[in-house]
Write a protein that binds this DNA or RNA. Structure first.
Lengths: 194, 194, 194, 194
DNA sequence: ACCTCCGGGACTCCCCGTTAGT
DNA sequence: ACTAACGGGGAGTCCCGGAGGT
């Protein structure tokens, strides 16, 4: 391998990818540096060339996980072209069984909510920005003429998405889990809402 | 100290109280046995008289935390007497600043959702039961004649409550945090919903 | 077994005998209550009928061990009848290989010196009394007319006896150990001393 | 903190210093690893980087304590230059109130005699060597032309020193304690001895 | 007087984050 | 960038002193 500064950035990114996935899977306390580095095909010792501390890594990993979700959502929304269709796509992506089950690639706004609440200010700021982005996307997909009501609706929709995914993961009953996904999806995308 | 079997049960309960609070505050990985025992005025050594392993404790602590929330909600709902009023009380309690901030006594269905998703089957079963209880309470407070729609509405309402609280905790912006609480509360209790 | 008060005193004494022996062998920290009681053909649980705490037992065991030595020395001295012969007998008993090796029945003034220094005042008082008794016996066996010089000689003799026994036990070399016993014995009983 | 091999040796030494002092004060059973490590500004967990077991530590601590005494005595003897004066210095140092009272820095040949008798062979060997060193020093300070008598005198003198210090510590009576120190000192350094 | 058990603390093992040296 | 190792600390085991209850 080369020694250029670009190579270093690549390595940095590879570690972050692994970390952001593992953090979503197992929380921010569990994954050990050695484990993360091994998963990134590196050794434990080299870690500190890239991050000044584990806390630092977790911080960046959270931001990276948030960005992941943002990118995915942008894709989803961009694929469709109607406003209402965009919302449909978003909701269905959020409440799909895949998004529920593949935690490692899931939206960090839901998956890391509890962890971010205990994390650094920087992470929480990134989280806040991400929530605002989501809200904006949802708002622009709503066709209510009243901006206040659109805002409120976006807040409720996002809350419901987040809550439904999290409960669908925690629950032990497959039927209840599916119910959460499908019924909430149906309700949120229901055309007849005020 | 006494030596009766009842005394042991009291001690057991005291440890669980401490643990269920700390687990909600800091997650299920962080709190150390020594710390929990000290908070319960005991020492690390005595722990294994009451639990066979740390995992065991966490398991019971999760269930205890879930029961705490159930009890609190039962109080809230019982205090009021009308069906619709009960829902109002519940939503306001769930979306109060107090419930957002005092994490150690908060509802575990929200607070521990991510943790339960990674926990034992027993914990997940307890979680499931708790979610069903919540849903039942909400359903019975709705006055829609169609049970299918009541069910769906309950699923959405609970999801929104859970999501809103979790995001309100993670977010760094006081205004967005308050917005989540108040706007979601307003929307969910809005009388004019279909 | 009977239940009379006398039987209880017998049991008490049996525990003390075991304890005073074990304490001399292994120090005052090592022997556990269970071990001592088992050696006295009793069980751990019955201990507190006889002693209010382990500390209490150790205290009494120290005094008992001191009394043991006193009794043995009285025998030795009484057997002989001349004054000088008494001293010879004492010194030889103290510096015999048996006294060096059978620690469990040895003179506590030597064996427990370090332990008593860290023990209760009552134990230290008993120790003091025992030392004075020893000194008196030695003084009365010396034929120097000057009481001041007899006192000094007794102090030196006792110190040498105690030191020699202790070093003879600690030392790893059999020859040095024997040398300590025999040469000190020879010097202390040397007739031609001033 | 540094990470070099030298740093580790320093830490090792620091632990030993603490341990050798505490062992002299409280015996070899009492001091707990956690206590010793805390006194060395470390935590319990790091202990096993430096010693394979508590027994190992005690063993080394005993040797260290013995070496301490040797160093101190070498100083005392070296300061004076005459042969007889050297003995005087030694005796006075050994039988000073300071040496009686400051147990933690005292000569281990006296203080740890009982403990070494129950310790490992390595410790007992170190003890033996130390005793021989002491004897040699004393012998060379005596001016008797007969080497056999010098040897015997050294054995008696060392025994008396050790015994006097130990009894002076155990005894409860200040007067008897002082008497032991001063009278034995006077007798041993008495110029008119045969 | 025995049996059982509780709470306490010590000890050991092992892993983690971090740093020095190669 | 890796290897190795240090110090921190947590989990689990064991046993002791002490206090019921049969």
């Amino acid at each position: 391998v080369g020694h250029s500064q670009e190579d270093k950035a690549v390595t940095h990114r590879r570690i972050l990818e692994v970390a952001s996935a593992r953090v979503r899977e197992a929380g921010i306390e569990k994954p050990a540096i050695g484990e993360l580095m091994k998963a990134a095909n590196l050794t434990h010792g080299g870690f500190y060339r890239h991050f000044s501390s584990r806390e630092d890594l977790v911080d960046e990993a959270i931001q990276r996980a948030l960005a992941d979700g943002a990118a995915r959502m942008a894709d989803t929304v961009a694929l469709d072209n109607g406003a209402d269709a965009a919302l449909h796509g978003l909701v269905e992506a959020y409440l799909s069984e895949q998004h529920r089950d593949e935690v490692s690639g899931s939206c960090a706004v839901a998956t890391l909510a509890s962890d971010v609440a205990r994390a650094s200010d920087r992470a929480r700021t990134a989280y806040t920005r991400q929530v605002e982005d989501y809200l904006e996307i949802i708002e622009s997909a709503l066709d209510d003429p009243d901006p206040t009501r659109r805002r409120r609706q976006a807040l409720v929709d996002l809350s419901a998405l987040v809550g439904a995914v999290l409960m669908a993961r925690a629950v032990n009953s497959p039927s209840l889990s599916r119910e959460l996904l499908t019924e909430v999806a149906a309700a949120v995308t229901e055309p007849a809402r005020p």
